[in-house]
Design a protein around this nucleic acid. Structure first.
Length: 105
DNA sequence: GGGCTGACGTGGC
DNA sequence: CGCCACGCCAGCC
C-alpha cells in the first residue's frame, strides 16, 4: 500500500512550515517535494483545510503566481512580508519563489 | 460503479 | 495579459 493521503497531509504541513519569510511555494512544487506528482489539487485541498493561524499557508500560490480563491487575507499577509504583487495581482515567481537548489540568491 | 467538483498545471489563441 | 480547453486525481455523493 502507498502512503495514505493523511500521511501526505503531515508531509505537506512540514514543507509549508519551512517556507522562509517573504518567499513562496507552489502547490505543484509541494506535491513534487512530498513525492506526489500530479497531486497539486490534493495539496490545494489540504491547504484549504489547514489552520492558517498555525501555518504560513499564505505563502502557497499557484504555478502562475495566482493567489488562492476565498482567501482575501493572503494578499495582505504577503504584502506585510514585502512580497509585492504584479499589476495583475499575481506573485512574480521569478523573484519570490523559494528555490531549494539556489538558497537565498 | 458513475458522475461532479475543485486553494492545480500546461498549452493554445 | 487574459481566457479557455484539457488533462489530472482524490474526495464525495
Amino acid at each position: 500500500m502507498s502512503p495514505s493521503v493523511e500521511g501526505l497531509r503531515g508531509a505537506v504541513y512540514d514543507i509549508v512550515s519551512q517556507i522562509p519569510y517573504g518567499r513562496v511555494l507552489t502547490y505543484g512544487g509541494i506535491a513534487l517535494l512530498v513525492g506526489y506528482p500530479n497531486h497539486s489539487r490534493l495539496v490545494g485541498r489540504i491547504m484549504r483545510e489547514a489552520p492558517d493561524s498555525e501555518l504560513p499557508c499564505h505563502r502557497v500560490v499557484s504555478s502562475t503566481g495566482r493567489l488562492a480563491p476565498h482567501f482575501p487575507a493572503q494578499a495582505d499577509l504577503l504584502a506585510k512580508e514585502g512580497v509585492r504583487l504584479s499589476a495583475s495581482g499575481r506573485v512574480p515567481l521569478m523573484k519570490y519563489l523559494w528555490r531549494l537548489d539556489f538558497p537565498q540568491a
